[in-house]
Amino acid sequence: MYQLELHSVLSVAALLFCIGLYGVLTRRNSIAMLMGLELMFNAVNINLVAFAHFLPHLDGIILAMFGLAVAAAESAIGIAIILSIYRNFRHIDTDGINELKG
């Protein structure tokens, strides 16, 4: 009766996704936005692993692993871009980065 159900795990993942979304929409510091983005990636991975457990099917884990690798790559590039922005603008407030050079 108290078995773990698929829809509980999916709801938890959906809540984490929305928390991450709130972070991306609200935060002004670019790195904090990236942190919200990482929360969203994690929520998607939990979703995939939940389906892999409850179906059960192995492809959920494979897709989650690929998502993990791509998230790591995207995070690295995001940080590199933010460092370039910091070098040019001397701050990383997203509200203030509104001018193109030239």
């Binding site: 510091n29 790195i31 990236l34 942190m35 990482e38 995070s75 690295a76 940080i79 933010i82 460092l83 910091y86 001397r90 701050h91 990383i92």
Partner: peptide
């Protein structure tokens, strides 16, 4: 990496 970036850019 994110913590490194925070340390380098947190003003």
């Amino acid at each position: 990496m994110l913590l490194f970036a925070v340390m380098l850019t947190d003003k």
